[in-house]
Design a protein around this nucleic acid. Structure first.
Lengths: 111, 111
DNA sequence: ACTTACCGTAAGTCATAGCTTACGCTTTTG
DNA sequence: CAAAAGCGTAAGCTATGACTTACGGTAAGT
């Protein structure tokens, strides 16, 4: 397993609007930092910093190509977060169903 | 009734470790603020503030019961975020498959 | 080999998020 | 009715995060 680069980093990475804009922009495919920065309201170094965070979170794949570095979405980057959400909300749904069941207490109960 | 409480709020809500601890603690079921705070390393008012953020993000359901207020996980709270991730990463996977396909069918000769 | 392009990092500034203490309101209890 | 319990909110402090400009290092072009 070890899909997870630590949920913490993934969520922090996704919590920033500029970083989400970067991800949106990468949907069409990988691109170098310069091109990426042109479509964004912040400077190129700022983009570089965001890319570092996104990469550390396992959300991006970096492909050095001579002079440039191509950044693209990592296909498995979201697996850790997904697993986390599924786990957490799985229990939540169970607890909710249980509560609803308790409220309806006119049905038979079991264990 | 949009699921979307704005993914912005959802992600920011999830990005904080204390708030995730709160969610974890609520997995077993709803509970009032006081009980919730006892299991956490921060003060009760701090928990209240976090609960407000989580509620605004649509992640919690509040049930006033006389003197107290019971906080529980909202079953549909994650739907918006899930949809967002599915959409974003759906395209990412397509782009990735496309790129892989391109590489196989027409190898670029460089160097 | 020199110049240009591309990129990451360092240093510094400014805004914001999270915490604590203090306070006021509402509901329960004696 | 008075006292206490349970919460939310305001005010203030501090740490952290996001941005900018400046700089250095490597690859490409002439």
């Amino acid at each position: 397993m070890a899909y997870t680069h630590a949920i913490d980093e993934t969520l922090i990475a996704l919590a920033d609007p500029t970083r989400r804009a970067i991800l949106q922009r990468l949907r069409v495919g990988a691109m170098p930092v310069g091109v990426l920065a042109e479509g964004l309201p912040v400077s190129r170094p700022a983009v570089s910093q965001h890319l570092r965070i996104l990469s550390n979170a396992g959300l991006l794949i970096v492909t050095p190509q001579g002079n440039r570095r191509l950044y693209g979405l990592a296909p498995t980057g979201m697996n850790g977060l997904r697993a986390y959400l599924d786990d957490l909300w799985g229990d939540a749904l169970e607890a909710f169903a249980q509560a609803a069941h308790d409220l309806l207490k006119d049905d038979t109960h079991d264990t």
